[in-house]
Structures are given as C-alpha cells and as structure tokens.
Amino acid sequence: MARTLYVGNLPWATKAEDLADAFSAHGEVLSSRVITDRETGRSRGFGFVEVRDEDADIMIAAMNGTEFNGRIITVNEAKPREER
C-alpha cells in the first residue's frame, strides 16, 4: 500500500530526483514529481512524493518544517484531487 505526500514551498529549481533523494533518508520512495506550469514549464513550487504506507508518518514528522535548499518546506498527506 502507498500514500502520497504533498510537499509545498519548494525552491523553483527543485527536480523530482532532489525530492526523492531528500525523502529516501527516512524511508522508501516509490515515486516523486514536481508540478510545473503547463505553458511555461516552470515549477509551481510544490510536488508530491509517493511512499510506502508505513513510512509516511515518519517522513511527515521528519521533513515538515525543515529547510530544503534554502526554503522551509511544508509536508503533509496529500488530499484527493477535487472533481472539476
């Protein structure tokens, strides 16, 4: 089983690999992605990390409110996407 974590306030230059590297110190990362603007391709400053269910709470506690490449990041469990 997997859970998805929301990661906010990311530096603009953050890549998916950077997120995976940072979170893998606290458990197994299944996937990671940084959300980009469709038109410009520029980062929107947030992303998602998919992790094993048993590692999620540990990662949230370890990473929320910490400094990541010069910015204090927000980490919590992602909410389901709302229907349009």
Rank of each mutant, 00 (worst) to 15 (best):
residue 63 M to A: 02
residue 61 A to K: 13
residue 32 S to A: 15
residue 8 G to T: 03
residue 62 A to R: 11
residue 39 E to N: 13
residue 2 A to G: 01
residue 14 T to S: 12
residue 30 L to Q: 10
residue 80 P to A: 12
residue 47 G to N: 08
residue 75 V to H: 06
residue 36 T to I: 14
residue 70 G to I: 08
residue 64 N to T: 12
residue 20 A to R: 14
residue 13 A to V: 03
residue 42 R to D: 14
residue 32 S to G: 13
residue 70 G to D: 00
residue 62 A to K: 12
residue 17 E to C: 06
residue 73 I to R: 01
residue 22 A to M: 11
residue 25 A to D: 07
residue 37 D to N: 13
residue 37 D to F: 05
residue 63 M to N: 04
residue 71 R to V: 04
residue 29 V to C: 07
residue 20 A to H: 05
residue 79 K to A: 15
residue 23 F to V: 06
residue 23 F to R: 01
residue 31 S to V: 00
residue 52 R to D: 12
residue 60 I to V: 15
residue 10 L to N: 10
residue 26 H to S: 10
residue 48 F to R: 06
residue 36 T to S: 05
residue 43 S to E: 09
residue 66 T to C: 09
residue 74 T to A: 11
residue 82 E to Y: 11
residue 52 R to C: 12
residue 52 R to W: 03
residue 17 E to W: 01
residue 44 R to F: 07
residue 27 G to K: 01
residue 31 S to K: 11
residue 51 V to P: 02
residue 84 R to P: 14
residue 3 R to C: 08
residue 74 T to H: 13
residue 57 D to N: 11
residue 30 L to D: 01
residue 63 M to K: 02
residue 36 T to C: 13
residue 16 A to C: 06
residue 53 D to P: 01
residue 44 R to S: 06
residue 57 D to K: 04
residue 54 E to F: 00
residue 79 K to G: 08
residue 63 M to F: 02
residue 21 D to I: 06
residue 63 M to Y: 00
residue 54 E to H: 05
residue 59 M to P: 06
residue 6 Y to M: 11
residue 77 E to R: 11
residue 1 M to I: 12
residue 2 A to L: 09
residue 35 I to L: 15
residue 67 E to G: 05
residue 54 E to W: 04
residue 75 V to G: 05
